[in-house]
Each structure stands twice: as structure tokens, then as C-alpha cells.
Simulated scan of single mutants.
Amino acid sequence: MPRIGKPLFLWQKKLQEMGFSIAATRGTARSLFEAGILCEVVQKVHEGNPNITDYLRAKQIDLVINTPVGYHAHKSDDEIRTEAMRLKIPYTTTTSAANAAVQAIEYLQKKQVTVRELPQ
């Protein structure tokens, strides 16, 4: 199980500060807990039911941040992505996109939206 570096915890902590709950698979949940971030533990697709796709179908997940590593992860990634897209749930597989999504949510909650013309 790859270790998650502390800088990656910034967006998870920010989500909690904004009032969101976090759900993670066992290994990620352990790393988050060690960093002081509590979350609900969900099973991976190949681990049985209920799993992440069941949570998606039950509309208990509003944003999917999936960073697949390993054979099972890549195999289940297709199922998770397909279900998220079918249900119109935002989905990303990179931490940079996750960070950008969290920043966007934060700005929207604060109603700090600014429209600027793009340079030509």
C-alpha cells in the first residue's frame, strides 16, 4: 500500500472543515486516520458488498476522487467511473484535480466567484 504524503491531506482536511464527510477504502482510511482525519471506511469493488458502487447508487457520494493503484484498482476503476458518470457524480483520478475541485467548492461556498476575460 503506497503511503500518502502529508501535503495530500490538505484537501481532505479542507473538505472536512467545509462540512463534508469523507469515505475511503481501508488503506487510505488508515493513512487519513494517522493524519488526524476521520472517515467512513468503504469496501473496494472486489471486496464484496456494500462497496463504493453501492454507495454511489444510493446517492451517498457527491464527489469521487479515485487514485487507482494495482491490478484490482485498475480493474474496478472502470466500474466506479462508469457508475459515477451514469449518475452524473463528479469524478477525478488525480490529486491535482481533486485539489482544484476542493478549491472550487470552497469558493462557491464563500460565493467568491469572479469572472475575468481571458488574455488573447
Rank of each mutant, 00 (worst) to 15 (best):
V41R: 11
S31Q: 06
A24S: 11
A29N: 07
K75S: 12
T93D: 15
T28D: 04
V69E: 08
D62A: 14
E106K: 12
G70C: 07
P68A: 04
A24E: 05
I22W: 05
A58C: 05
T93F: 04
T93N: 14
W11F: 14
S96V: 15
T95M: 13
G27R: 03
V113N: 05
G48F: 06
M85D: 07
S21W: 03
K88E: 13
A29S: 13
K88R: 11
A97T: 09
L63Y: 13
K44M: 04
K111C: 04
V64S: 04
Q16N: 15
T28V: 05
L10Q: 14
S31P: 00
N49Y: 04
R57V: 14
K88H: 10
I61G: 08
L87F: 07
I65G: 05
Y71T: 10
H46F: 08
G70Q: 07
E106R: 06
P90M: 02
Q120A: 08
A58F: 08
I52S: 00
I22Q: 00
L118K: 06
V115A: 10
P50L: 04
I37D: 01
P68K: 07
R116W: 10
A97Q: 11
E47C: 02
F20P: 03
I80C: 02
S96I: 14
Q60I: 02
I105G: 10
K88Y: 06
A97F: 05
R86A: 13
A98S: 03
T53N: 10
I4G: 01
L10F: 13
F20Q: 04
N99L: 12
V64A: 04
M1E: 11
G19R: 08
R57K: 15
Q103F: 08
R81Y: 09
H74Y: 11
E47S: 04
Q12H: 10
G48T: 06
A23E: 12
S76V: 04
T53G: 03
G27L: 03
E106H: 12
V69P: 00
I61V: 15
W11S: 15
C39T: 11
L8N: 15
D77S: 14
V115F: 12
T94E: 13
K14I: 00
H74N: 10
S76A: 11
Q16V: 12
